[in-house]
Simulated scan of single mutants.
Amino acid sequence: MPEPSLPFICRFAPSPNGRLHLGHAFSALVNAEAAARTGGAFLLRMEDIDTTRCRPEFEQGILDDLAWLGIVPAAAPRRQSEHFADYAAALDRLEGMGLIYPAFDSRSDIARAVIESEAKLGRPAPRDPDGAPLFPFPRSALADGARAKRKAEGEPYVLRLDMAAALEAAGAGPLFWPEAEGMPEGPAVAIPADPAQWGDVVLARRDVPTSYHLSVVVDDALQGITRVIRGMDLYHATSVHVLLQRLLGLATPVYHHHRLILDASGHKLSKSNSATSLLALRNCGATPGDVRARLGLDAGQPTPRM
């Protein structure tokens, strides 16, 4: 493994809407140990933009679980709910460039349009890398003036990125991100970015003034993150993040997308599927060493096998 040239500023960014599970533990350990090996810093971020589901007791649970694993963040956590102004500033910049627009189509409107399109064309509608149908209504289907009027009248809406206009505004240079292969400290290779495969992504909602795509880009820049270490499930989303970084004039960190921790049926562990929490494991007598063993991390050698 090559020696890292600079200290890593890494982050772990869970949502405090439930207890951490083994998948979270793996990501937190990989980030914390990469930062430690390079003489850098491990930062904690609470992705709590969903204020209806995120609760203080879950945030405390995250802190307790990290302490149990032996992970100590270098600073107090950044809470997204305390920084909506940062995301609003980024939206204002994109709006000033003419790159976002309010869309009023409900989920049922979108589903109906997709079904009708598939029936008419006799083939599946285009889908993003996660398998969701692309937004089927072009911005040109409604004049910007009419959109502004409906927004001012209080209709529910989301703010979408005009992908075609955004790609044009990004310029002719290639879009790519540096991906560290094999290990977090491994050599980085250039991965071509293809944000168009996501269509006109949502960047904010009327009741939630940001989205994951927007907030993660803004947060990584403001926290000075130099190495983003996260799961493979976010690999393709990096294309959108690279585009937003270029549009907003933000640096692109080096990325490393690690393996996912799967359940017995081969699915990614998640809170929604009631994955066993670290608290439950602890209550059953598990130790941090037991967790490392279950994750395939050698207790005697902190370097994770990826």
Rank of each mutant, 00 (worst) to 15 (best):
P129N: 05
D130K: 12
A132R: 15
A132Y: 12
P133C: 13
L134I: 10
L134N: 07
F135R: 03
P136W: 02
F137M: 01
P138A: 09
P138W: 11
P138E: 12
P138M: 09
R139V: 10
S140Y: 01
A141E: 14
A141S: 15
A141G: 12
L142R: 13
L142A: 09
L142Q: 13
D144W: 12
G145L: 07
A146P: 04
A146T: 01
A146D: 06
A148H: 08
A148Y: 06
K149P: 02
R150K: 14
R150F: 03
K151D: 02
G154V: 01
P156G: 00
P156S: 10
Y157D: 04
Y157E: 02
Y157K: 00
Y157C: 05
V158L: 11
V158C: 06
L159I: 10
R160H: 12
R160K: 08
R160L: 14
L161M: 12
D162Y: 03
D162G: 05
D162M: 02
M163D: 08
M163Y: 03
A164M: 00
A164P: 01
A164T: 06
A165Q: 00
A165N: 00
A165Y: 07
A166I: 06
A166W: 06
L167T: 05
E168Q: 09
A169N: 13
A170I: 13
G171W: 13
G171H: 15
A172S: 15
A172H: 15
G173N: 14
G173F: 04
L175T: 03
F176C: 15
W177G: 07
E179C: 07
E179T: 02
A180E: 02
A180N: 00
E181A: 11
E181K: 12
E181F: 10
G182C: 03
G182H: 03
P184F: 09
E185D: 13
G186V: 07
A188N: 02
A190E: 09
